[in-house]
Amino acid sequence: MQRVSKAKSERLVNLLIMMLSARGYVTKHQIRSTIEGYRHQSDGAFERMFERDKEELRAAGVPIATGSNEPDLDIEAGYRIERSDFELPPVAFTPEELAVLGAAASVWQDSVAAQQTVDALETLRAAGADPDPERLMTLRPRIPAEPGFDAAREALLARREVRFDYRGQPRQVQPWRLSQRRGRWYLLGFDLQRSAPRNFKLSRVTSDVAAVGPTHAYEVPPADELAGLVRFDGDRDGAFAVVALRDQMGGDVRRMAQPATWDHPLPEGFTAWRLESPRPEILAADICELGPDAICLAPQELRDMVIRQLQGIADRWEA
């Protein structure tokens, strides 16, 4: 078993080198008479072996072109590998850059992308660069994956449609882009039932993500167009509030706030701020969470909403 596999690896490497080093296209006939592993095969066995080997090289990413040195003449087609399509272009990194590349090695978590990154760094290593994972131990970003992420990404890269259940509803989507925010993955794609772009939060996908149909089934719009279509939970600033916050207090809310002017007197030690959020309910929750350190000033409907919520809490939980 081991010997068969070794013979095959040897044959594949030699086939690749022959197509890469030839001046023009090499014909099947030339290949058969040159490569040791093919020479003693019967016609049928050679045909099958050669087809499988070509497929295996292509699957490994080897760009095999088909054509003829004399396209005007009706002669047997041949094969070649264009060196510029095959080889990684020259690249050199400084030691500092190699430390950064080394830090990239451990970024992906729980995804096939982790192994793919390691494979990519091996290619750089083979190109003479030596990414150093030890040097920049002080920089450790991590990207966790989620169920469905790997399948969606594989389909996206291959331009295949995917099927999945979203909150229990079946969907068929052309994946356009995967984005992560706050540790959650979102898939932007063209929803085929609704004939419109839609955003899907992967944590709400209730089935496997299954690729369907052929590869290269659709085109993805240009990146600048996509940027305007990606939506996360909590996007779209549809509501605003003017709030008074106790100075030095307010945490995350104050960080998101813009200074505001307020013409009426405020309690001692309070300053006016403007807040924006997708929905008024979120603003009310943000303000209530701050208890006596925040006062909702405007708009009046939001102010009433805050008062109702505070009143409800006081009534329900007062001993």
Partner: peptide
């Protein structure tokens, strides 16, 4: 010289590196 990276390898490394940056 080594072969060019496959699309999924190249994109995995790019995203990881962008996050490091």
């Amino acid at each position: 010289r080594p072969m060019r990276m496959r699309l999924e390898e190249a994109t995995s490394l790019l995203v990881a590196l962008e996050v490091v940056v």
